[in-house]
Design a protein around this nucleic acid. Structure first.
Length: 204
DNA sequence: ACTACGATTACCT
DNA sequence: GGTAATCGTAGTG
């Protein structure tokens, strides 16, 4: 698959300046890419979760601004990368600067630079390449050193419109994965027809 | 300084 | 299905 960061249509800052759940839903079907040393890797977003600023004890911002969640409070379109269990997960900041809300990208369908991503992951099975928030960070070579980068203006990193099939996707909201607080809320969004989800859609 | 824990993953039965 | 590995945070003393 060929992809050009320079000619693709990048999601603008306004895309992220909305209610976080709306951004999370709208990100399904978009393409996230990262270029390192001239090599592009990326894929189609198929699973996201919204983390809010108020009344959301599951959110990192719930107890206020600290040194480690600082970038979650920066401008919408900022990349927020946090460490968890000796791995990393990535978010796109939403709403407005100072709010402290973001969308976690939990799974992508690998489409760009698949061989490179397989090498980084030590994994040739596409179903186990980018089907989890820490897996996709490793595949895209994103870690804490990338925290605070700008998805809107960075020449090597961004999220882009998919030309063709956005409108054909069936998007479902389910409960978020792996949290111990606020478990009842339907703030996880998945492309229900994707084979690349971190976990299947619950039965009902 | 010490402890508990987590928006996870890989590997096991 | 279950659970151990792993390490940066945050809370406590």
């Amino acid at each position: 698959m060929t992809f050009s960061i320079e000619s693709a249509e990048r999601l603008p800052a306004d895309f992220y300046c909305r209610k976080t759940a709306d951004v999370a839903r709208a990100l399904i079907g978009k393409t996230i890419v990262h270029r390192t040393a001239g090599t592009i890797t990326g894929g189609i977003v198929v699973e996201t979760e919204a983390y809010l600023h108020r009344n959301d004890p599951a959110s990192h911002s719930a107890r206020g601004r600290t040194a480690s969640n600082e970038s979650m409070f920066l401008r919408p379109g900022t990349l927020y990368v946090y460490p968890i269990h000796a791995k990393y997960c990535l978010n796109a900041v939403t709403e407005e600067a100072g709010t402290g809300a973001a969308v976690l990208i939990r799974a992508i369908e690998p489409t760009i630079g698949i061989e490179t991503m397989c090498g980084r992951r030590g994994q040739s099975d596409l179903r186990r390449l980018t089907t989890g928030p820490a897996m996709l960070c490793q595949a895209l070579s994103i870690d804490r050193s990338d925290d605070g980068r700008c998805l809107v203006g960075d020449s090597d990193l961004g999220i882009f419109l998919n030309t063709a099939d956005d409108h054909r996707r069936r998007i479902v909201a389910t409960k978020r994965i792996g949290i111990s607080k606020a478990q009842h809320r339907n703030l996880r969004f998945v492309d229900m027809n994707s084979r690349f989800l971190s976990r299947p859609v619950p039965k009902r």
